[in-house]
């Protein structure tokens, strides 16, 4: 058994190995660079795009859209999910509608979003927000249903009314679900922003990747993808920090 300390070493070796094989295949002409890119070329592109500041402009735009969409969608979705506990009738009425909306691939809604929100930043935020809203709504409502029914019974035996039970037991009881949803939604918000940029944009990583792909500039495509990965890791890291503060 390898000790735990060796795992980062193996991870580094694995990634380095893949990069070296990739580089060799391209250099020997087995794999054409316009189809696969090339590690050394990607690195050069990364340095050039960072130095010119172009990368930051795109990354900043995408991050802004994703974060704004995330905050709006997750907040509204969580609040709605929590509130649905208050009325079982309303929850029953809305259930099939929510399931139906959740089943629709959100990219199919893109023309509507363009018509309603234009092609500017508002459209990207709207797509990110609508994706995260649905995910938050469904999983937070599920969270309220998972709260121990005996806790609700206990509160009722104490003479608590529904709103009191909701405030003191349901909302805190569902909070781990809200945190779990937030981590899921970071990914969904980035999908929303990038998809929005694919459809129509003048700035952003989605636009940058799409454009580079159209020009067969695969090195730039990989720089964009790499940049999205880093962004996802940073946002997830920040959320884990937040989550740790809410642990019981």
């Amino acid at each position: 058994m390898a000790s735990k300390a060796r795992i980062p070493i193996y991870q580094t070796l694995l990634i380095a190995g893949i990069l070296i094989v990739w580089e060799v295949l391209v250099r020997t002409g087995v794999a054409p660079v316009y189809l696969y890119g090339q590690p050394s070329g990607i690195l050069q592109k990364l340095i050039a795009l960072t130095a010119s500041g172009e990368l930051f402009t795109h990354a900043g735009a995408t991050a802004f859209e994703a974060i704004l969409g995330f905050v709006v969608g997750t907040t509204l979705g969580s609040v709605t999910g929590l509130a649905l506990w208050l009325s079982e009738t309303v929850a029953r009425i809305l259930r099939p509608i929510i399931v139906a909306i959740n089943g629709v691939p959100k990219i199919a809604l893109a023309p509507l979003v363009v018509v309603w929100f234009g092609v500017d930043i508002g459209a990207k935020v709207a797509i990110a927000a609508s994706l995260t809203f649905i995910v938050a709504l469904i999983s937070v409502y599920q969270g309220t249903q998972e709260v121990d029914p005996d806790l609700v019974k206990l509160m009722r035996s104490l003479g608590a009314r529904r709103l009191t039970i909701w405030r003191k037991v349901i909302v805190p009881g569902a909070s781990p679900w809200i945190l779990a949803t937030m981590r899921l939604n970071i990914g969904f918000a980035m999908i929303g922003a990038v998809v929005g940029e694919y459809i129509s944009a003048k700035v952003g990583l989605g636009y940058f990747i799409y454009n580079a792909g159209a020009l067969y500039d695969l090195n730039s495509v990989f720089v964009g993808i790499f940049c999205l990965m880093v962004m996802a890791l940073v946002l997830d890291f920040l959320l884990v920090k937040v989550e740790a503060r809410f642990k019981w």
């Binding site: 005996d150 206990l154 509160m155 035996s157 104490l158 003479g159 003191k168 009881g173």
Partner: peptide, 30 residues
């Protein structure tokens, strides 16, 4: 349900996010 009886179950049903003190005062709070 008027809180005329106190209920104690097999499960302690303490709220994990509350301290001992806050759990004891739950009924009074309600």
């Amino acid at each position: 349900a008027r809180g005329h009886v106190g209920y104690m179950l097999q499960k302690d049903l303490l709220l994990p996010w509350r301290t001992v003190m806050e759990n004891v005062t739950l009924g009074l709070e309600v």
